[in-house]
Computed example of a mutant assay.
Amino acid sequence: MFDWEGVSEFVAVAETESFTAAAKRLAISTAQVSRQVSALEARLATKLFYRTTRNVSVTEVGNIYYQHCRLALDGLQEAQRAITDLQRIPKGKLQITAPVTYGENPIAPLINNFVLKYPELDVRLHLTNQKLNLIDEGFDLAIRLGKLDDSSMMARRLASRTQYVCASPVYLAKFGVPHSLSELDRHNCLQGTLDYWHFQEQGKVRNIRVKGNIKCNCGRALVDAALKGIGIVQLPDYYVLPFIKTGELVSLLENNRESDEGVWALYPQNRNLSPKVRLLLDYLAEELDKT
């Protein structure tokens, strides 16, 4: 097996024709350079330099050895540059999965912006509300919402999301404003995939069963129904907050709002987190914090 010890010192002396200058280039002592070169000569059983009190010159054998060593060191430097560039400039395949609606907005636009910064990436974004197996499906990371139940994955919290209960001013003018959880029973509550809503009361989580004349697994459809005054909805901020800000929807029961849920990035714990994935996670965390 090749022993690299002393090679850098030998090349530095050959190029500077001075042990002192070589030591300065390598930021080590002249004595250490001399010891390393002498040890290298001993291992090779040949003289690499002619030494006098005034100068140093490479022997014929030393010159041949230098040519090969220079090529080898250049190759090592090129390999190091390649790794450094890969860490600095993400490239190659990146496979991500995310929930459909949250993936459509804001994840997909942010990933598109990330690709604009790093066009050598080859991104595969798969939007699904199913919890796919990252290892079996070959995904680098998954975006998950709410409480996590997969302990086999590493997780990083990227942001938070808030659940709002809201209705349009038209609906509230016609049917009144609920001021307590018990009053929801008298209102048309537009349901998603579940027939109960999450709340907090006196520091404890409460699940309140609700009923209404629309049940749909599409958040946008429920927002549209609420905007048209059909009923009350409970949906995450990215669905309703823009309409709350414009006054088209009114936030209700704020004292009973459940604590914010996490927006998570999951990745397999038995994989080293590649620089491109780490850079994407940092980017998503920074950008989602602005929303």
Rank of each mutant, 00 (worst) to 15 (best):
M1P: 12
D3P: 00
D3E: 09
W4L: 11
W4P: 05
S8M: 08
E9K: 01
V13W: 12
E15L: 13
E17F: 12
A23I: 11
R25P: 03
R25T: 10
L26H: 10
S29Y: 02
V37T: 10
L40A: 02
L40P: 00
L40G: 00
A42S: 14
R43D: 01
F49A: 04
T53D: 15
S57K: 12
S57N: 10
V58P: 04
V58F: 01
V58Q: 05
T59I: 05
D74G: 04
D74Y: 09
Q77V: 07
Q77H: 11
Q80R: 13
A82M: 12
D85S: 12
G92T: 02
G103Q: 08
E104T: 07
N112C: 08
L116M: 13
K117E: 14
E120P: 06
H126C: 12
G138F: 02
I143Q: 02
R144T: 13
G146W: 08
S151H: 08
S151D: 14
R156G: 00
V165S: 15
F175P: 01
L181Q: 07
N188T: 05
C189D: 04
L194P: 01
F199P: 00
E201K: 14
Q202L: 11
K204N: 12
K204G: 04
V205M: 09
I214Y: 06
N217T: 07
C218G: 08
V223L: 13
V223Q: 06
D224K: 14
D224V: 10
A226Y: 01
L227F: 03
K228F: 11
V233F: 07
V233M: 09
L235S: 06
P236L: 04
F243L: 10
L249M: 07
L253M: 06
N255Y: 08
N256M: 10
R257Q: 15
W264S: 09
P268Y: 04
S274K: 10
P275S: 10
R278E: 15
E287D: 02
L288N: 00
D289M: 06
K290F: 01
